[in-house]
Amino acid sequence: MRTGPFSQTEVINRLNAYFVPVYVVNEDYRDNGPAPKEERAEMTRIYREALTSGFSAGTVHVYLLDPNGKTIAGMHVAEAAQTPKLLALLDKWIKSLQVKPGKPLVAPVPQSVAPKTAPGTLTLHLTARPLSGGGSWGGVSENWIPYGPEEIQGWLPTGTVRLGQTWNPDPALVARTYLHIYPVTENNDVQKNALQEQALTATVLSVNNGLVRARLDGRLRMTHSFYQKEDGKVVEANLVGYIEFEAAGGHIRTLRLATENAAYGGGTFGVAIRSVP
């Protein structure tokens, strides 16, 4: 939906001019999710109201409420993902409710942003995109992976740094990023991903004015099911990149990694990782 209907000008304009749009992450509303009980109660009310009214209802759905909060429509994502069907639903209710167009009631802001972290945190931004051969959804996905100040040293060598020196960043830290190296699929529970093989080696290329630059060479093999049900599919990837850090103090200025011929499900995909800012 993000790179489908929600990227279409007609849909964006309709939602901004005639509706109050909101998206709900189901995981936040279940079990130990952070959604307050009042929010959960409201979502439950809408779902039940759709059911009792004979509308389409489910967990991955579009719902419309009238200005007073009454549920007036439901549409399964398989239909809503088809822009003409979604537009038809929106237009039907714009007309029926005689909604007057206006400016967005909430200012649009970036929805994928780095998490708020403590000073000294290293945050990595990861982008995954399909390249060729299929095996995944289209579109682009992102992850933000923070490493607290106390974890930074685990990325770096110990002792005096010298040209040509090699070391292996802490595998536990590396694994936290590697678990996100997969293309766009339905299964986004990284706890289900299993690293069968992982490696990352750093080699010092230069030391200039206290700034160390080292190349990074990595590899991973990881099981990752396309859907929630186990399917035996495997991610295979080599990675190349570099890290720059201050020899004194160990501040990481830059970390970059990119996959080389990453494969999954019979297709290839690319992953780019960069430290932010």
Binding site: F19, V20, E27, H61, L64, S141, E142
Partner: peptide
């Protein structure tokens, strides 16, 4: 504002494309 509400519910995180 007397506008209708549009709600999209999903498993995963649509804001980062992981859904």
């Amino acid at each position: 504002s007397q506008r209708p509400v549009f709600i999209f519910t999903m498993d995963g995180r649509i804001n980062i494309g992981r859904c």
